[in-house]
Structure formats: C-alpha cells, structure tokens
C-alpha cells in the first residue's frame, strides 16, 4: 500500500499549501525554484488585451458596485465632521465647511448612554478585554481539538465532529435562554468570564473546522515521524504542529477578532452591565438620546466602533480574504 502524501484539501487548501511552500511538499526541487513560478502561473489570470464592450460593461458594473458600498461610508465620514446646524440645513453629500472634530471627541469621551456620560471609550475597553482572551482561548481550543480530530483517531471522533458542525449551523439564539439559566446556576452570569466562555463555545465549531481541515492537509507521515521520535499528544502539537500553523493561526485570529468585536447579542445578554461591549454601547448612544438626534456624534461613534475590524482588514490584507473564504464554509 503506497502511502500517498495527502494533498491539501477543503477550504484551506490554499493556506495549507502556503505553509508547505517553505517546507515539505516540493519534492526534490531546489529551494530557489519555488513559490515565484507557482504564484506567477496560477494566482493571476491572463491580462486582457483589447477593450471590448463586455469589458466596458464589466468595469462599469464594478464602479457602480464600489460606489454603492462606498457612499454610505463617505456620508458617515462627512456627517461626522459637520456641526449640527450644517447637517440640518445642507445636503447629506455636501462637504463640511470646516473640519470639526468635536463630535468625535464627544462620541469617544462624553456621549451619554442612559445616565452615564462617559462616551463609548468605556465600551471600547470592555470590547478589548472581552476580545483578547476570547480570541486566544477559542483559537487554542479549536487548534487542539482540530489537531486531535485529524491525527489521533479518537473513538467517536466523527460523531463529535458532526455534532460540533451541527452546532455551527444552528442559530445560536435558541441557546440563549438555556445558557443564561446555566450560567446563573453556577453563579457566573453577567461576568467577564461568562462572556468569554460564551464566545469560546460559539467560536469552537468554526475554529475546530478550519484547524481540522488545515491539519488534514499536512502529511500524516510528519505526525508518524514525531510519534516514532517519542512525541506524545501535547509534545507533537506544541513542537511540530503549532510551529507549522502560522498561516491558519492568522486566519483564525482575523475571524475571531472580527466576529467577537462585532458581536452584539451575546455581549448584551451575557456580559453584564459593567462589561458591555462597544457594539452595545453604540446602540445605547444612538438610541437613547432625548431631543434632537446628534447625527454627527452617532456617525463618529459608529466609525469608532467599526475601526477595529477595519484596521484588522487593512493590516491583514490577503489573509483577511482567506478568513472570509474559511468563514464561507459556515454557510
């Protein structure tokens, strides 16, 4: 029985292959002839030579689509820089007369959410405190579980995995009430650990899935070699698998940071009054004004809230696209 080297498969074929561009998979080739050729031939299509009507139509569609998605962002930025009289009198597309950052300052540090008027910075720091441990813990759990499921043929592993996947497809709203009851029974309800645990639980299916698929793309011989060398469960995970997982770790981090930061309902239900994340605070700022709606402040607060995922997007670039592709499995 010839042991075929496993080819990367599943949604992570690309990242798995990437991991191996610097490692194992090129058989016998010299190190220099790698990567560049592969990128050059497969990653990009042929350059179009002539400008046909179809192509003009295509570009036209792209421009319209871009405008459709960009205009709201433009309006938001413009509005956030205007003063209230300006907003009342002018068109929403009109440029601000002067660069007025007072709405931003107010949104950050003194906007009112109900009775407290400390701005959404409270929510920002809450979100940071929730996102950091949740991201780390859910990635650690997903990586370990994915590793266990793909390399250690645990009895009932397939059933466990199927159940996990089922969890990923069920709308999580139906779990809210049972979980609230469960957490209050153990006295964790409305605490920081409560929301972190909730995020880990809900992140586990997708994290397990992407790590399992990534590890399934690694050759099992590597694992076998480590076993012959005497590695145990954690030793192989820590010394062999994890150092090779950088690409998938980045993807997982992007997915989890954006998911957890953007979460609203879990934070609202489980975090408790003192730990409300930024999204919930934003909602309170926008919805709890009395009298005139301060659009400039609302816009500024919204942009501030969206800043973290946006920053992740701009910093991570190509990795972000992979994260989306991985998330696409979730359906």
């Amino acid at each position: 029985m010839s042991t075929e080297t496993a080819t990367p498969r599943g949604p992570h074929a690309e990242s798995a292959r990437l991991a191996f561009d610097r490692g194992e998979r090129d058989r016998g080739e010299r190190p220099t002839s790698r990567g560049t050729t592969r990128e050059g031939t497969t990653a990009r299509g042929r350059k179009p030579k002539t400008l046909t009507i179809g192509r003009i139509g295509l570009y036209g569609f792209v421009v319209v689509a871009a405008a459709f998605f960009l205009l709201p962002a433009v309006v938001m930025v413009l509005t956030s820089l205007k003063s209230m009289p300006e907003i009342r009198d002018g068109s929403i597309f009109a440029l601000p007369q002067s660069l007025d950052l007072s709405a931003w300052a107010k949104a950050w540090s003194s906007a009112c959410t109900g009775l407290d008027c400390e701005g959404i910075r409270v929510g920002f720091w809450n979100s940071v405190i929730i996102t950091v441990p949740s991201t780390i813990a859910s990635i650690a759990a997903g990586a370990l579980l994915g590793y266990a499921l793909s390399f250690w043929r645990v009895k009932g592993a397939d059933i466990l995995f199927a159940v996990l996947l089922l969890g990923a497809f069920l709308p999580y709203q139906i779990f809210l009430y049972p979980m609230v009851r469960a957490f209050s029974m153990v006295g964790l309800y409305n605490t920081l650990s409560c929301i972190v645990i909730v995020h880990v639980i809900f992140g586990l299916p997708i994290m397990t899935l992407i790590f399992r698929n990534f590890y399934a793309g690694l050759p099992v011989e590597l694992f076998n070699a480590a076993r012959v060398d005497g590695g145990g469960f954690f030793r192989i995970f820590w010394n062999v698998m994890l150092p090779m997982s950088t690409p998938i770790l980045i993807v997982a981090a992007i997915l989890q940071i954006t998911n957890i930061w953007n979460d609203f309902i879990l934070g609202l239900v489980f975090a408790g009054r003192d730990n409300l994340p930024m999204t919930v605070q934003l909602n309170n700022v926008v919805n709890s004004t009395y009298g005139e709606r301060e659009y400039n402040l609302n816009m500024a607060a919204t942009i501030l809230t969206a800043a973290v995922p946006l920053l992740v997007y701009f910093v991570s670039g190509r990795w972000f696209v992979r994260g989306i592709a991985a998330g696409a499995v979730k359906g």
Binding site: T3, T5, E24, P219, E221, L222, A225, N239, M244
Partner: peptide, 8 residues
Amino acid sequence: FQSYALYP
C-alpha cells in the same frame, strides 16, 4: 518515510 517527514 517516503516524504522525508522532516520537521520544517
């Protein structure tokens, strides 16, 4: 092993 299986 066939694929060398070196720790990359």
